[in-house]
Amino acid sequence: MAAATDDAGDSNEMIRVVSSDGEHFEMPEAAANLSLVLRHMIEDDCADAAGIPLAVVAAKPLAKIVDYCTKHAAKSSGLTIEEAEELKRFDAEFIEVDTDMLYDLLVAADFMGVEGLSKLAVQRTADLIKGKTPEQNRETFGIVNDFTPEEEEEICKENEWAFQITKPPSRLC
C-alpha cells in the first residue's frame, strides 16, 4: 500500500465535481484522473473551488462513480495479487445494482470516460442477458415486443441456429 498511498499523498489536492442536480462531491485528484473528461479539465485548469459541472450525471450515479474512482486510484500502482483480487471483489459488489442504476452507470461512465467502470457496467449488462430467452430478457429489461407474430416467425427462421437450445430433445423456437 505504501507506494500507492504515497503517490496519492503527493498530489493531495481534492477535486470538486457538481452533479446535474446541483450536488457537490469531492475526490482526490488521482481518482478524478481516472475519468478522461475530468483529467482533461484538470489539465486545462478548469478545476476550481466551484467544482467541475457534469451536466448529464445525476447525484446518485455520481456518488457511485466517485466511490469507484477513489477506490481504484488508491490501489492503482504496484498491484499485488491480493490487491488485484480485493479490487475484483470490490467491483463485483459495486456493480450489484438494479437495472436503473446500471443504465445510469453505463451512460455516465461512458460520458465521463471512466474506462474501467464502463467495462464493468457493460460486462454486467452482458451477464444479465446471458442464458436467458428473449421473453426473459424482455421481462428483465422492460422491453416491449413490437413485432407481429408473422415477423417474429420470420426472424426465428432466419436465425434458427440460435434458438436451438442445448438440451435434447430439441426444443426449437
Binding site: A126, I129, G131, E152, N159, W161, A162
Partner: peptide, 15 residues
C-alpha cells in the same frame, strides 16, 4: 460484444 452468440442473435427477437 460479450454476450454468447446464441443469446446475442436472439436479441433480434426482443423488439
Amino acid at each position: 460484444h460479450f454476450v454468447p452468440v446464441r443469446e446475442a442473435a436472439s436479441t433480434s427477437l426482443l423488439s
